[in-house]
Amino acid sequence: MKIAAATTVHQADSHTYSANFQEGWTIGSVPHGGYVTACFQQVVRKHFDTTLQKQDQPHTITLHLDFLRRTQTGPATFTVKDVKLGRQTSVIHVSLRQDDREEVVGYVTNSNLDTETGVSYPTGWTIHPPPPPTDVSKLDSDTDATWGERKAWPFADFRKATQQIRSWFPRKGQHSPAIVDQWLSMWDPEDRFTNESLGFVVDVFPQIIESYLLDGLDCYSVQFERNHTPEESPTSLLYSIMRGLLRRQSIHDYG
């Protein structure tokens, strides 16, 4: 199932929306935190496309979610409160409930990135250390000299959400246990990343803390998969800042 279909939301009234969390997007029995975040982003987009259409602020620029309790697969209800409606930005509060339990709450700020203007300074900032070089055209065939595809993540049957993606990691290993470099695409070649799916993208990556708990052992080695049992690292908080829009057309998307 494509991520757009898996995160579909329906409007019940001007400030209430519903979704159905799918089995294939879970870690264990719990919906993946990034997947839940993507559903939040769909709610926000629909709210600004309908109820708050006159604001002309379709783009989320900041998002802060607190995961108070575990979610579950099945129906979910989102309630939106318009907190501050402004000319440049607007802030809303979104609450997720299942079976009368409030499980996730968040504040989201929207604006219009197509019309935004402002200052930009040449700070000289660069990524350090720089990521390994990549020939993106060779990722699909897994022939890039530097990056190799991990056909399945460890314990993929337990981490069902990881079956929705393809991942490439440095063939020589990560630069250090504190860094995770990866290329990522959806498994379905016709699926596309959108700004509304970025919550899933930023939350589906190897957990850095696992490398330290395992004394530097590569969590994606055969040795790890043979000698360890799966563990769940639940999302407790997710904060994201969006500084631009994804391109609307592409042959294949990688992140």
Score class of each variant (00 low, 15 high):
residue 203 D to V: 02
residue 139 L to S: 08
residue 190 E to V: 03
residue 156 A to E: 04
residue 193 F to S: 07
residue 196 E to N: 09
residue 196 E to P: 04
residue 125 W to A: 03
residue 100 D to W: 06
residue 183 W to V: 09
residue 197 S to L: 08
residue 139 L to T: 04
residue 195 N to L: 09
residue 129 P to C: 06
residue 130 P to T: 02
residue 202 V to F: 13
residue 115 T to V: 11
residue 161 A to L: 04
residue 124 G to Q: 05
residue 206 P to T: 08
residue 124 G to L: 02
residue 120 S to K: 05
residue 106 G to P: 10
residue 172 K to Q: 12
residue 211 S to F: 15
residue 131 P to E: 05
residue 186 M to Y: 10
residue 201 V to W: 01
residue 177 P to V: 14
residue 105 V to E: 08
residue 131 P to K: 01
residue 104 V to Q: 09
residue 130 P to G: 05
residue 109 T to Y: 04
residue 197 S to I: 06
residue 139 L to K: 06
residue 127 I to Y: 10
residue 187 W to R: 12
residue 198 L to T: 06
residue 173 G to F: 10
residue 155 F to K: 03
residue 163 Q to L: 10
residue 208 I to G: 02
residue 170 P to V: 14
residue 185 S to T: 09
residue 200 F to E: 03
residue 102 E to C: 13
residue 199 G to V: 08
residue 111 S to F: 00
residue 185 S to Q: 04
residue 174 Q to L: 14
residue 117 T to K: 10
residue 157 D to R: 05
residue 100 D to Y: 04
residue 219 C to W: 01
residue 123 T to N: 02
residue 185 S to K: 05
residue 200 F to T: 00
residue 199 G to L: 07
residue 222 V to Q: 08
residue 186 M to W: 11
residue 117 T to M: 07
residue 209 I to P: 02
residue 183 W to D: 15
residue 110 N to I: 00
residue 134 T to L: 05
residue 216 G to Y: 14
residue 213 L to W: 15
residue 99 D to C: 08
residue 132 P to W: 00
residue 117 T to D: 00
residue 140 D to L: 02
residue 201 V to H: 01
residue 147 W to C: 00
residue 117 T to H: 05
residue 212 Y to L: 15
residue 191 D to S: 13
